[in-house]
Every structure is written in structure tokens, then in C-alpha cells.
Simulated assay, not measured.
Amino acid sequence: MRFVRYNEDRLGLLTEDGSGVVDLTDRLGIDARDPLREYIRGDYDASEYADADPDHDRADVELGAPVRRPGKVIAAPLNYENHIEEALSDRDITTDEWFTIEDKGYFLKAPSSVVGPDHGVELPFSDRRTDHEIELAFVMGDDVKDVSADEAWDHIFGYTILLDISVRGDQDRSNRKSYDTFTVVGPCVVTPDEVGDPQDLEMELQLNGETRQRENTGDMVYTCADIVQYASIGATVEAGDVITTGTPEGVSALSDGDTIDAEIENVGSMTVDVTERDVRFEDVDVQKGGQE
């Protein structure tokens, strides 16, 4: 099944060809601002509607991030060998030496940075490089703590595409990757039975029609389950959390007016528009001291 959140707080299933949406909100009696998290945590079963006729054309609805506001967005840095080499040769990407999640751990992205594909990316600066990064991500289906990698697979609810938008610079990763709209998730969350082997999926990102990133998820340094295991050592990984797995080589700068097309085999595809806000720190009226 391919779960979507549409028109703000409606839960639905995307048809196999991506052209229609089957409404689940009324059929299942779900009343929640974050309906997929409610579905995951509740006693619901949408399987009987998997082959239902669509209630809406995809073009007539607005797709939001499948999980509106995850409790955590957990991200693995430098998880493809070719991107490690790319990052070390381009000091705009990282000033660190090579490291793994065992060395420095995962990083967190602000849940408020999460948007759906129809919202688009808003660049906050015109004078700083901001890159695209396509990643396979997944949504947790259970709360887990100190889980083994072998067991972690059983606790993944489904898989999705995530664009990790990244301002380059010396700031902490969680800072420069957490601006509003910098975590684009969608178009749907696909259950494992339809994805097949998540460590053998072709993915591609095109920028304005030109392929920039193309890779197989089998080239990850750490698997999806490895990342769950590592994350659960330090924190309880909760149902509805989004975990993302790193990007391959080919990252490049975004500009106002760009169009991103992202696709992952058996997961889906989405088109995301890029616009610019151009807000500079010196333009912000910073109040020092207490309020008057």
C-alpha cells in the first residue's frame, strides 16, 4: 500500500499508477491532524481498500509530507562511499576528515523542516550555496530501544523519498539542514511488501531535466537496519519517526526557479519546485537584552 497525506489532514492510498487517491479518512474514521501517525499507532487496517476505485485525481489534491510532524528526523551522514570521496574533495561540503556514524553519530533535522512535494523548497539565502541530496528514507512502525539490526527490519512501517536540502558552511549539520522546507518527504510511504529489497533500489535525481545523482541503495555503508540499531542505542526510536539514510555523489547547488525530479525504484517519484526568499541575518531586527 502507498499511504499519502493530502489536503492538510486527509489520509489516503495512492493508486499503483500514481494517478488517483483513495480516501481512508472517512472509511476508517480517522480524525487527526497527523493521520498517518494516528494510523500507525492505532488499530486500523486499510488493506481492504487497497484496490478501491480512487476518490480523487492526483492532480486535484495537494500532497503533504506523509507524516506531518514526526517526533524525530534521524539522519545518517556520509553513508555512500562515492559521496564520501566527493565530500572530502569539496570543502564546501565538509571540512571534516572521513568519518562514520560510529565516529560522530547520526544528526537530527528539525521536524518543522518537513514539507510535502507540492509545497516545494524555499531557499533562505541568495549568497550561500544550498545543495540537493536525494535519499531513501523510512517511517518507523513501532517504538524500539536497543534493537538489533536483524530485528529492526520488522519495525519499519514503510519507505519514502526524502530530499535533504543543505546549506553549506561551518555550522552544525542540524542547523544548516533544518531551515523550513529543507526536508521534503513524499510522495507516499510504501509498505515493505511492495518495496522488495530496500538495499537494492535504483534512485535518481534530475535538476532541470539533467541527471545529477544516480545510485543503487546497495552501495550504502550502513543499511537501513544498521541505522535503526545505532539510533536506538541512544534514544527510543518511536513509531512515526522518519529515518533517512544518506545521499550518493552528485550533489549540486540549487537556484531560484529550479525544478527537482526525484525517483526511487518501487517507492515513487516526485517533482519539487525551488523558490528563493533571500533573507539575510543583518536584515533581521535582533532585539538584545530583555523586553521593554
Rank of each mutant, 00 (worst) to 15 (best):
R277E: 05
N82M: 04
E135G: 08
Y49C: 05
A52R: 04
V228W: 14
A32I: 02
T211S: 12
E38P: 08
S252Y: 03
V251K: 07
L136M: 11
S166L: 05
I233C: 13
P35L: 00
I74A: 09
S19R: 15
D23E: 13
G20A: 11
G218M: 06
C224G: 07
E48Q: 15
S232G: 09
D9A: 13
T245A: 11
V184S: 09
I134H: 09
Y230T: 02
R2L: 08
N266H: 13
G240K: 03
V167G: 04
I233D: 13
D55H: 11
L28E: 03
P66W: 00
H56R: 06
D170C: 02
D150K: 12
E16N: 11
V167D: 01
I227C: 12
D172L: 13
M1Q: 10
D31Y: 03
D90R: 10
D51V: 03
Y106D: 00
A225N: 02
A59K: 15
E194L: 15
V237A: 06
T94R: 00
P192F: 00
R41W: 07
D278V: 02
P248S: 00
Y80G: 13
G12L: 04
A52S: 15
E8I: 06
N216F: 15
G196F: 05
L11W: 01
D127A: 06
P187D: 04
I243M: 14
L254H: 00
D200W: 13
T100M: 07
S148H: 07
F3W: 06
L205D: 01
V272P: 11
M270C: 12
D17Q: 09
D118F: 09
D278E: 08
E292P: 15
R212M: 14
K104V: 10
I260N: 03
D172H: 15
G169K: 04
D92L: 06
P111H: 01
I101S: 10
I74H: 07
P124T: 00
I227P: 14
S112P: 10
L88M: 08
T211K: 04
T223Q: 13
V4Q: 04
E8W: 06
E151Y: 08
C188T: 09
I264C: 07
L11C: 11
E249V: 11
W98N: 12
C224D: 03
A87L: 04
H83A: 12
D200Q: 12
R212D: 08
V184Q: 09
D278C: 06
I101E: 05
G42E: 05
L14F: 01
I134E: 05
E97D: 15
S178M: 09
S269V: 02
F107R: 07
G12V: 09
L201I: 05
F125S: 08
M1E: 08
L163V: 03
G268R: 00
V279H: 04
M220E: 03
L123F: 03
A65F: 09
V114T: 02
R2T: 04
R173V: 13
I93D: 04
T217G: 10
K177W: 08
L207M: 10
S126W: 01
I30R: 07
K177C: 11
G29W: 10
R91K: 15
K104N: 14
D60V: 02
V284Y: 08
T191D: 08
A225I: 01
E249M: 12
A87E: 02
G234M: 06
G120S: 00
